[in-house]
Structures are given as structure tokens and as C-alpha cells.
Design a binder for these strands. Structure first.
Length: 271
DNA sequence: AGTGCGGCCTGTCCGC
DNA sequence: TGCGGACAGGCCGCAC
């Protein structure tokens, strides 16, 4: 499932389309998480792609007349193909350009979305209440601690709350807490300030490392004809229930449920 | 305001 | 082998 690193890797790949002009937009299935706007094609045709940016896990295709907001949900991928390529079952939207290339959205589970806004995209209802980016200078141990003081949820749920910080999905939440040696079940308001500094560092490390990995496989992402362009992740705890901890070599990786999400941690070195 | 949970959707895996 | 059911996941929106 696309987490922040996959979305960022996608954003970088899409830079190659900047300057292209939309000449056709095909929507084969409007029924994504939200209906794909009926007027999407009318808005876009003749307009050009001026830039591709990202806010949380939303990709923003900045055009002259407005912005396409794309979320990949659970199973979405965007790839650049030749406009003539045959579509398959889950290829829901094609953005075709004057240079013969096509940006194709595939999303088997249809948890993703394609939206249009003519106004400031950051004021869109889905974006306006988002917390800081993990790489923003405002995201510090002090910042997180101040919020955590009035929250009693397990710390894993806190860092997955998009009002607190964006882009920390289920997999990387477990990984960051492992790196910071914090028990994901610990109540947010029972964790000391210095440990939040460590946690912020761990979140940044885990995400930036994953983005670097994505960068190195960008070529595969581009030309891969296989499944969605997810790159390999090096994970320490996620999905490793029962295995010996790679760090302390003493505890076993334990699985529990927090906020209805699978959670993994070392029973020995995370406190 | 903070918390918990239902719902969206389909591929995959498990047990019968 | 076929079938039903549980599960996974991001994240909004509702109810308490």
C-alpha cells in the first residue's frame, strides 16, 4: 500500500510530465472513494501541467486553471505509459498528453480519489486540517510533546493521526517506534519529552530512508510492467511476528491490535 | 475536544 | 475444486 515514500517517489517520477498539455482525459470508472468529477476532462483539456507537488499522501497536479488532487488510497498507482496502451480491469483514469504519453491511475480497491479544485488546494476540505509534514521544521520533539500531553491514546495512534503529523502510515509507525525503542501501546501522555525528540528523529529517519530506497528503484518504478511500482522495504518489525528481534537478539517480535490496526514491536527492547 | 468505530472495496488466504 | 468468510489497509465522518 502506498505510504508516504511511495507517494513521494511517484511525485518525483511525474516531474517528467511538467510542461505537457492535456489533450484527453478518460474516466472509465467514476466510482472511487469520492466520485471523480464529471467535468474533469472539460477542466483539463487544453491546459498544461505546471508542477507536481505533494501534501501528506495527496499528490497535487498543478495546472493553469486549477489543481487535480490525487490520493492513491490502499492500492492505487500512477504510471506513465504510451497513450495507445490497452487498459486493464482496474485502470480507472487516463490523463493523456500532447506528447503521446499518458498518466494512468490503476486502483483495484478504489480507496483512492481524483478530485478537482479551482481554488487554493491547501484550503480544500480534505487538506486544510492536516498537521505538519514530518520533514517540516515545525515537527519537533517539543511540538509532539505539547500535543501528547492532552492525549491518552496509545502513542502509535497519536503519530498516525493526520492532524498531528501527516504521512505516518501503519507500517512506518511500527518501524519508527521500534527505532525509538518506544512501546507502541504506551499512552501518549505518559511519555517523557526527550523520548519524543527521539521519536521525531526516528520518524524522519524511517521515512527519509524509505524515500531514498524509492529513489534508487525509480527506473524500475518507471518501466516496470508488473504490479504497482512499490519498492522493497527493509523492515525490522512489521509483519515479523514471532521472529527474533534484529536489534537486541533477545526478545521476540510481538503482534497486537491498536485502533484496529496490526502493530508489531519487540517485547524486550521497546518500553 | 478526544476517542472509538463503521464503512468504503477487492485480492488473498484460510477452512470446510 | 469451489465457496464463504475473515482480513488487510487509509482515512473520512459519525456518535458518544
Amino acid at each position: 500500500m502506498p505510504e508516504l515514500p511511495e507517494v513521494e517517489t511517484t511525485r518525483r517520477a511525474l516531474q517528467s510530465l511538467i510542461g505537457c498539455t492535456f489533450n484527453k482525459v478518460i474516466v472509465r470508472n467514476h466510482n472511487l472513494r469520492y466520485p471523480v468529477p464529471a467535468l474533469l476532462a472539460a477542466e483539463l483539456i487544453g491546459d498544461s501541467l505546471l508542477g507536481v507537488s505533494r501534501r501528506a499522501k495527496y499528490l497535487l497536479l498543478n495546472c493553469g486553471r486549477g489543481t487535480v488532487i490525487v490520493h492513491l488510497g490502499m492500492s492505487g498507482s500512477l504510471r506513465i505509459i504510451a497513450a495507445s496502451s490497452d487498459s486493464e480491469k482496474h485502470d480507472h483514469v487516463d490523463f493523456c498528453f500532447d506528447n503521446g504519453s499518458c498518466l494512468r491511475l490503476r486502483d483495484p480497491r478504489r480507496f483512492g480519489s481524483v478530485l478537482w479544485t479551482a481554488g487554493d488546494p491547501f484550503s480544500h476540505p480534505l487538506l486544510k486540517n492536516l498537521g505538519p509534514e514530518p520533514f517540516d521544521l515545525i515537527f519537533t520533539g517539543d511540538y509532539l510533546y505539547e500535543i501528547a500531553k492532552r492525549r491518552s491514546v496509545p502513542v502509535k495512534q497519536l503519530i498516525m493521526d493526520s492532524r498531528v503529523v501527516v504521512g505516518v502510515g501503519n507500517i512506518y509507525a511500527s518501524e519508527a517506534l521500534f527505532l525509538a525503542k518506544i512501546d507502541p501501546r504506551a499512552k501518549a501522555n505518559a511519555i517523557a519529552k526527550d523520548r519524543y525528540s527521539r521519536l521525531v528523529g526516528a520518524i524522519i529517519d524511517v521515512l527519509s530512508n524509505a524515500i531514498d530506497c524509492g529513489g534508487t528503484t525509480l527506473r524500475d518504478f518507471y518501466y516496470n510492467e508488473g504490479q504497482a511500482g512499490y519498492f522493497q522495504r527493509q523492515l525490522s518489525v512489521y509483519g515479523k511476528a514471532g521472529e527474533l528481534c534484529v536489534r537486541c537478539q533477545k526478545g521476540r517480535i510481538t503482534e497486537c491490535r491498536l485502533g484496529q490496526r496490526s502493530t508489531f514491536f519487540c517485547s524486550s527492547c521497546q518500553r
